[in-house]
Amino acid sequence: MRTHGNLALGALLALSGLASGCTNVRDGFRPVLTDAPFVYDIGELRVIGAEELAGVDPSTVPDAVHYGQLGAGENAGLYGGATFQFRATGSSVCVVVDPEAMFWNKEISTQSNTVQYKFEDIFEDDGDLDLSAGLAAYYTGSPGSEIGDFSAVYDDPAGVEHELAFNECIQTGYFGDPAHAGRATVEYCDIDTSLHSGVMYTAVLETFALPIDDSILNFGALAFDGRCADLPWYDSNGALLAGASECVIPNEVEYADANGIPEEKAWFPELERAYCSGVGKVNTFCKDNPGAGCQSEEEL
C-alpha cells in the first residue's frame, strides 16, 4: 500500500542520515591504539636496598626495577595502568614511579634569569602516572585486567555499609589535600609496613595521561627498602646523592622500549642527566641541542 511505501522511504532517509552521522567522530583526538598494553600486571618486585641500588645499573635488575610501557584503551573515557606487588619489610618502604619524560614550566618564576628555565619544554613526550599503594588484600582491581583502588567495607552496628579508603601512599598538594604529581613528574611515597611485616602489598600506577606524540607511556618503577629521602642516585658529575627524584630511575625512555631508544628521542638520556643537575645545566643543554627535548633558541 502506498502508505507503507512512503513511510519506509521516510525511515530510510532518516536512517541513512544517521548512518553517515555515526561515522563522523573526529578520531584525531583519540589516543592511538598501539601494541603497548592498556592494563597489565608487572608481577612481584623485589624490594631493593640502598647499597645495591647505588652500585648497580638499574636496568640490569629487572626483578627489582621495572621498565615498562602503557598504552591506550578502546574506550576514550577510561585509562588503565600497571600494578606490581612487593613484600612488606616491616619498616619503611619507598615506592617510586617515573613516567616519561621530563616537564618543566619555563615561566614559573619572575625572579632572576639564572634560576629560571630559559627554554620551554617540549611537552608532547610527557605522560602522567598516578601512584597509590596499599595492602594487596584491600585492592579492588584485577591485576592485568582492571585498575581499581584500595578500599574495604565496614559494616556499622546498624548494618549500613561504609567504604573505607585504604590507600597508604599519601601525597598532598598545595592545600594539604590529597593530590598527585603532574605530567612526567616522578611520584613516590613512604609506606610504613611495620604493622604488616611479610604481608603482600600492591602498588598501582594508574594512567592519567598518555604522551600525545605516540600514545605510548614509557615508565620505570621500583620499591625501595628505606625512606624516600634516602634513595641514592648519581648526578652528571658522578656524585652520589640521596632523595627520590626524576633521577632515581634513569632513562625510562630507553629501557622501557624493547627496541631501545627511539631515534627521535635520542637526546633523552643526556637531557635527563642535565635535568637532574639543575636549571643551569638544562639551559646549557637546550642551547647546545636545539629541538632535543626543548624548544630552540629561536622560540625565545
Binding site: I108, D130, Q171, Y174
Partner: peptide, 13 residues
C-alpha cells in the same frame, strides 16, 4: 617546590 613537585587541585575521572 618550583611548580614541578606535587600538584594540588581536582583530579577526578
Amino acid at each position: 617546590a618550583s611548580g614541578v613537585g606535587f600538584s594540588g587541585g581536582d583530579y577526578s575521572t
